[in-house]
Amino acid sequence: MTSTETFYEKLKKWLDNFITGSGYTNITTGYITGELQFLVFIIILSVFFRLFSVPLAIILLIFITAFALYFAPVIKDVEKENMNDLNRVLYWMVIYFAIIIAITLWGG
């Protein structure tokens, strides 16, 4: 199998992931735009590591890009995390309280 064909297979799989499920029909454009936006967002966020060290930031950037492309489409997971389920929100709340308690114990 040549490299062109594998690339084609990858792309087809990626598109199939959109078309199955609720992403089909009139919000496919929204899904694809959101996907690209999110990738760019992650990459830009990872650039912030340059405030500590520039070479490490470049390595981190490459790693994050590779991971994001490997796990694509990310938008499905983003949507699941942003569900209006009460337990989702409670999960974030528990994490938040865990951070507060960690600060308390660490500082005290």
Binding site: N26, I27, G30, Y31, T33, G34, Q37, F38, F41, L45, I75, V78, E79, N82
Partner: peptide, 16 residues
């Protein structure tokens, strides 16, 4: 605020 900006706008994209 950065997280809010991006997540809000991405979720707005996929609403019907």
């Amino acid at each position: 605020s950065v997280i809010t900006m991006m997540i809000g706008v991405i979720m707005a994209l996929i609403q019907i």
